[in-house]
Design a binder for these strands. Structure first.
Lengths: 176, 176
DNA sequence: GGGCGCATGTAATGAGTTACATGATTGA
DNA sequence: TCAATCATGTAACTCATTACATGCGCCC
């Protein structure tokens, strides 16, 4: 239902056609969703069939025809329902990266460290990328800030793990 | 491939049968993976066919027969390959919860606050649950600690958002 | 004797992806 | 003229899930 909520939320702000919606999501909301084009088109058709929105065919000059979507009252109702559900709940994401962490002691501390340094590098790059993202409109900016917080916490965590590994690989270096 | 890595990692530590593996994952590694029973059985069969592990039928008394899995050298090789790949990379999880955040300003600050208070409650409960988890063996404990860090960061973040909302709903209260 | 636990599966379903199809316009 | 952009889709496929099937033993 998340993907529906995403589309509904954007159409609540402003009517759009499918291509436009998809481009907006890819450019501005890539941290929220990795929805693909066929999925977006499919959901739009589905929700139009269900009476959540109406399609309007438009055409500018000889450009390809567009289907512009506008929420119906039923659509607005469902939008608010899904939004309230989403906000009230917490769903812990699965960190696939944790599976490797769980088996870290299959490797020597040295190798574990060098691999996790690579991971650290990747996280740092992701963080830089998010820091460079231009400020978003209204509460969409919250998503960016959340991402920043998350990535900073990841970096801190990785540094902690790397520190512990460095103590393991130099066991002779004892703190006084 | 993550789920394969999970199964391989456990079998690398100790040979087990399917039921046993699944129970272990559910009890001790529920933060890593939400793999379901049929998926686990399917993957075990698949990897056995591919020569990554061998099945051995065993039976105790009149109990249901078991299929015990043990890694082959090929399986060990693939285990280490997947483990190294996993450790070196970072894959940002999708936070479905962020979709609601992006559209927070569709609601009044008051309603947004009360809904996010509910979310905060859910996060706090999850945090308590993780804090009560008994210490895990070796690097499996890292997963628990990572989860703790993540949930604490989430709580901090929610408190920040809630604070901003409280400022919006009492705009007369200006700081000197 | 009735339900739960052990132990392994099959079949149907679903959600979403990839790859492909179409056809006009714009720009190098 | 060749590729890219605009704009919408269909078809096949993958991966994983849910629901169901089986059958014995154990415990209350």
């Amino acid at each position: 239902m998340d993907r529906r909520l995403l589309l509904l939320g954007l159409l609540h702000q402003q009517e759009m056609h499918g291509y436009q919606l998809f481009e907006f999501i890819e450019r501005d909301l890539s941290y929220c969703s990795d929805i693909k084009k066929p999925t977006a088109y499919y959901l739009l058709n589905k929700m139009a069939q269900d009476g959540w929105m109406i399609e309007e065919q438009t055409q500018e000059g000889n450009r390809p025809p567009r289907k512009v979507y506008r929420l119906t009252p039923l659509g607005e109702e469902n939008y608010l329902r899904l939004l309230r559900e989403n906000l009230a709940q917490h769903t812990s994401p699965r960190f696939h990266d944790d599976i490797g962490l769980a088996f870290l002691d299959s490797l020597t501390p040295e190798e574990a460290r060098s691999l996790l340094e690579r991971r650290r590098q990747a996280v740092a790059e992701a963080l830089n990328a998010v820091q460079d993202v231009p400020v978003h409109r209204g509460s969409q900016q919250l998503v960016i800030e959340h991402q920043l917080r998350y990535l900073r916490a990841e970096l801190d965590w990785l540094d902690e793990v790397l520190f512990r590994l460095s103590e393991k690989s130099h066991p002779t270096t004892k703190s006084s």
